[in-house]
């Protein structure tokens, strides 16, 4: 909520300043904003519905039962897959992770789950491809998976 207020204030202020300085430039800017919005909308709607479906089918207690404290490498694998597919707003990620740990999920498993949730997006992959091209999009997602796995490994060694 605070985020939105700050964002809107900043955008309004800059828009105002820009309009006073150069009406034409401002018009061009707004037109390109609108085109960007229109281009991403179909993908975004699909992503939202996909995530809604995934989150209502996979409840925290169900996820915890897959990635419990003793689930080991298999648990890591499951959480990597679930985390890569799903996509939740970032401010929900850590409270969700906390809920999972309280439900009995292991810390390294939750670590890889949260990290992939935020950095890997199979749901957004088609959108990322349109933006950067296929090869870069795949490479970036793979590097994010590697980072998440290494991060989980460090957590495993250091904190359990």
């Amino acid at each position: 909520m605070i985020n939105a207020i700050v964002l809107y204030s900043i955008a309004t202020i800059y828009l105002g300043v820009s309009f006073i300085k150069d009406k034409h430039k401002t018009k061009v800017a707004l037109w390109s904003s609108w085109k960007m919005f229109r281009n991403v909308l179909p993908d975004l709607l699909a992503i939202m519905l996909f995530v809604g479906l995934a989150l209502s089918l996979l409840t925290p207690s169900l996820i915890s039962s897959f990635i419990g404290g003793n689930s080991g490498l298999l648990g890591i694998l499951y959480s990597t897959i679930i985390g890569s597919i799903a996509l939740v707003p970032s401010f929900i990620v850590f409270p969700l992770g906390h809920t999972l740990v309280q439900n009995g999920a292991g810390l390294p498993q939750v670590a890889v789950f949260m990290s992939t949730l935020m950095s890997v997006g199979l749901a957004t992959l088609s959108m990322e491809q349109k933006t950067f091209g296929r090869s870069f999009a795949y490479a970036r997602n793979i590097s994010a998976i590697i980072m998440s796995l290494l991060f989980a490994l460090i957590i495993w060694v250091v904190m359990t």
């Binding site: 955008a11 309004t12 820009s18 800017a29 904003s33 939202m48 809604g52 479906l53």
Partner: peptide, 26 residues
């Protein structure tokens, strides 16, 4: 869940895109 996240998105995205558009011009 879906309608909530769509609303969140429609709320957050416009100012971001406006800023990106302005940045592009200025």
């Amino acid at each position: 869940l879906t309608s909530k996240s769509i609303l969140d998105m429609l709320f957050l995205l416009p100012p971001v895109f406006v800023l990106v558009g302005l940045l592009d011009q200025w």
